[in-house]
């Protein structure tokens, strides 16, 4: 049992299970899944579908955080890629043409990589703190997205494009497969190549890594580029789901949710070890929480309050100073006031 509790997925999974259990008690039909027109419907499916963009962003964010960094610009990249894709489609005569949709996707993803590289260059070569370096694109990115859409909400009518975020395959939302593909790619990239080892090494101790011959700059740049492309894919899913691009609101605050998902998943903001599966569960927790709050009829905005407490609790647990204080207090009590301990026990 003790070993089980020490596993990095124990607490995230317990949280997720607790949330699901609450839903089961509160409204039993939370778990019901119906088949309509060959598609699956139900709250669980919704969680997967609406949670997809967050999961994708959080996967990229995990790697960035593992290097002791953070990427604040993902929300802006989500908006920019969605805007660019929709703009490309709306400018063409045949919005549903296969070539056009492909072109839109490729152009947006290339831009997403370029933006990620930009962040990576500022951090690794420029030596600017990640929070500050990515803040630039966070601010300017929204403007760029609106520039692309001319401040309008661009709607497209392209069933092919719409399929990315709203289509279904084998009865499941297509976005679920995208998430799976990215998750597996990230896993393979980090665990089957040496990338994961190098990221953890650089994130733990960059000087020692340099002396062991690791090219930490190249690692940093590629990690930010990967985070960029993840945000780009999330942007495509989001905009295709609603068949429109909103430069102002698409992906708003997704960077914060993504960071939260990563932290809940057990990856420390201090860099080092990272857990992609933990992040996956962390993102699902956030999405389930949102759905739950929505279901029990509380205004969805109140999710924020809950999130605030989750952030605090997780960070306090990760804080060495906090653990030390609690630990010392216990020890102190044991020696100074045994009576109190027994009474409370």
């Amino acid at each position: 049992m003790a070993r089980l509790m020490k596993h990095h997925l124990f607490w995230p999974l317990t949280m997720l299970a607790g949330l699901l259990l609450f839903n089961l008690c509160y409204s039993p039909d939370f778990f019901s899944i119906q088949i309509r027109n060959g598609h699956l419907y139900g709250s669980l499916i919704d969680i997967l579908n609406f949670g997809a963009p967050l999961i994708v962003v959080a996967i990229g964010m995990t790697l960035v955080i593992a290097t002791k960094g953070v990427d604040l610009s993902v929300g802006s990249i989500v908006a920019i890629t969605g805007a660019l894709a929709c703009m490309t489609l709306s400018k063409s005569s045949d919005q549903n043409g296969f070539a056009v949709v492909l072109l839109a996707i490729v152009i947006s993803l290339v831009l997403a990589i370029v933006l990620g590289l930009w962040n990576g260059l500022l951090v690794s070569l420029g030596g600017i703190q990640p929070i500050i370096a990515t803040l630039i694109l966070m601010v300017a990115g929204r403007g760029i997205a609106q520039l692309i859409t001319s401040g309008q909400i661009i709607t497209v009518s392209s069933p092919r494009y719409n399929y990315i975020g709203a289509g279904s395959l084998l009865g499941l939302p297509f976005s679920v497969f995208i998430v799976l593909a990215i998750f597996i790619t990230a896993l393979l990239l980090t665990r089957k190549s040496a990338l994961g080892l190098f990221i953890e090494s650089v994130g733990t101790n960059s000087e020692a890594s340099r002396l062991a011959g690791i090219r930490s700059r190249a690692i940093l740049i590629s990690v930010y580029a990967f985070c960029g492309i993840c945000a780009g894919i999330a942007g495509l899913i989001l905009s295709s789901n609603v068949s429109s691009a909103d430069g102002n609101n698409a992906g708003l605050w997704v960077e914060l949710d993504a960071i939260l998902a990563v932290v809940i998943g057990g990856t420390s903001m201090n860099g080092g070890r990272f857990y992609l599966s933990g992040t996956l569960i962390g993102a699902l927790i956030i999405q389930t929480l949102t759905t739950t709050i929505y279901m029990i009829g509380v205004p969805p905005e109140i999710t924020l309050v809950v999130k605030a407490f989750v952030v605090l609790v997780v960070c306090l647990i990760q804080s060495e100073a906090f653990r030390k204080k609690i630990f010392e207090r216990r020890k102190y009590r044991k020696y100074s006031d045994k009576a109190e301990v027994t009474r409370h026990a």
């Binding site: 190549s193 040496a194 190098f198 953890e200 090494s201 733990t204 000087e207 080092g272």
Partner: peptide, 28 residues
């Protein structure tokens, strides 16, 4: 502590680190 070991990694990972860095990303 500061220029040698990578604290958060295992003994195995610390041992193979330089060899792996020398082989590059993909020749794992």
């Amino acid at each position: 502590k500061t220029e040698g070991i990578i604290e958060n990694l295992t003994i195995r990972e610390n041992i193979i680190l330089a060899l792996q860095a020398n082989r590059g990303l993909f020749r794992t």
